Simulated scan of single mutants.
Amino acid sequence: MILIAGIPDEPPVALAIAAAEESGAAHVVFDQRDHLSAGLKLRLDAAAGWQGTLSTAAGVIDLQAIDGVYVRLMDERYLPDVVDLPSNAPERLRTARFHSLLHDWLNSAPVRIASRPRAMLSNMSKTYQAGIIHRCGFDIPETLVTNDPDAVLDFVDRLAAEGDDVVYKSVSGTRSIVQTFRAADRARLSHIRWCPTQFQRKVRGTDVRVHVVGARVFATRIESEATDYRYSARQSGSDAKLTSIDLEPGLQKACVALSAALDLPFTGIDLRLTPEGDAICFEANPCPAYSYYQSRTGAPIAAALIDWLAAGGALTRTKAGLAPNGMDRLPAVSQPSA
Results as ranks from 00 to 15, higher is better:
Lys41Ser: 13
Lys41Leu: 14
Lys41Trp: 10
Leu42Gln: 04
Leu42Glu: 03
Arg43Gly: 08
Arg43Asp: 08
Leu44Ala: 10
Leu44Ser: 02
Asp45Met: 06
Asp45Pro: 04
Ala48Ile: 06
Ala48Asp: 06
Ala48Met: 06
Ala48Gln: 03
Gly49Trp: 04
Trp50Ser: 00
Trp50Phe: 14
Trp50Ala: 02
Thr53Leu: 09
Thr53Ser: 09
Thr53Gln: 07
Leu54Lys: 01
Thr56Phe: 01
Thr56Arg: 04
Ala57Cys: 13
Ala58Leu: 08
Ala58Ser: 12
Val60His: 02
Val60Pro: 00
Leu63Gly: 03
Leu63Arg: 03
Gln64Pro: 01
Ile66Ser: 00
Asp67Trp: 03
Gly68Cys: 04
Val69Lys: 00
Arg72Asn: 13
Leu73Cys: 10
Leu73Phe: 09
Leu73Gln: 05
Met74Glu: 10
Asp75Pro: 15
Asp75Trp: 10
Glu76Tyr: 11
Glu76Val: 12
Tyr78Ala: 12
Leu79Met: 10
Val82Asn: 01
Val82Pro: 00
Asp84Trp: 01
Asp84Leu: 06
Leu85His: 03
Leu85Ser: 01
Pro86Trp: 06
Pro86Glu: 08
Asn88Ser: 14
Asn88Val: 15
Ala89Cys: 11
Pro90Leu: 05
Glu91Gln: 10
Glu91Cys: 09
Arg92Leu: 03
Leu93Lys: 08
Arg94Pro: 00
Ala96Pro: 11
Ala96Tyr: 07
Arg97Ser: 08
Phe98Thr: 05
Phe98Glu: 00
Ser100Asp: 14
Leu101Lys: 02
Leu101Ser: 09
Leu102His: 03
Leu102Phe: 07
Asp104Cys: 14
Trp105Gly: 08
Leu106Trp: 07
Asn107Glu: 08
Ser108Met: 15
Pro110Ile: 14
Ile113His: 07
Ala114Tyr: 05
Pro117Thr: 15
Pro117Phe: 09
Pro117Lys: 09
Arg118His: 07
Ala119Gln: 01
Ala119Gly: 01
Met120Ala: 06
Met120Thr: 10
Leu121Ile: 10
Leu121Gln: 05
Ser122Glu: 14
Asn123Gln: 13
Met124Leu: 11
Lys126Ile: 15
Lys126Arg: 00
Thr127Glu: 08
Tyr128Lys: 09
Tyr128Arg: 05
Gln129Thr: 00
Ala130Ser: 07
